[in-house]
Amino acid sequence: MLDVIIYGLLAGGVLSLVAVGLTLIFGIMDITNFAHGEFMMLGMLGTATVSISLGVSPYVAVLLVAIAGIVMGVVIHFVIIKQTLGKSLYVQVFATFGLSILLQSIATMIFGTKYIALDDPLASSRVNIFGTDVEAAKLIAFVVGIALVIGIWFWLNKTRQGREIRAVAQDTYAARVVGIRPGRAYVIIFTVGVVFAVIAGGLVVPSQIANAYSGTTFTLISFVIVVLGGFGSVPGALVGGLSIGLVQAFTGVYIGTQWQQASIFVIFVLVLLLRPQGLFGRKSGDSALVGGHE
């Protein structure tokens, strides 16, 4: 029982890291990003490839890949995402869906469709947590993931720039009046989201095989976490990610691994119907319908 809890929490830490980017992009830019998991996939394949070809530890490789992720995030923001700001939902859905197909096929061209596995002595060593034997890679991914999520929360709440970004999310017009440039906040948030997803990919790849189609699942899981925690809420993404990790671990052990996915989507629909604003979200102004202002 305890080992199931530990496995679930460890898996959930990384899920929080992916989802926090998605929730910020949604909460601050009002963009539904269907390409989010692809950034994680690129992080997985990029880290594995760099680590194998340069012969360095994946934890060094992930830093290089994260820097490439910054460039990718800024470019994609200006070329594509900026054009969809404020547009209707279906423009966003299909622009980001097109982006996801594009990234997936570019990854297929570069890395092929084969699964890539990574073998690293540090990552595959075992550690003991409360009597449960786990891979070091999972512990490292959990610790780094949680640290980054808490870090972004502090940055948003305790620094001037973070407060400016939250101001843009609350009222773009008023933020503009007091001299904040929303455009800059959007670039920063989108890039942070991309880089977090890339890092999350780099953190899981030592303990998990990956190919060009590994991203889609994470897009869907991230949406579940974001809805569970409440759109735009960083603590929500943290708690949501850990809960989804736990649910997957328990379903896998007690019901069967083929039902792991189904369990989280059933939870997803139930949350949407019973408490659509999520655990940490605020209720919409339109009491008749949830999401009335979009």
Binding site: L89, V93, L220, V269, V290
Partner: peptide, 22 residues
């Protein structure tokens, strides 16, 4: 009847995913 915009789109997407899994 209860959801709109992003919420409705995502809930219906989950419906498809559940059918796929079943």
């Amino acid at each position: 009847l209860r959801l709109r915009g992003h919420y409705f789109a995502l809930a219906t997407l989950a419906f498809t995913v559940i059918v796929t899994i079943l």
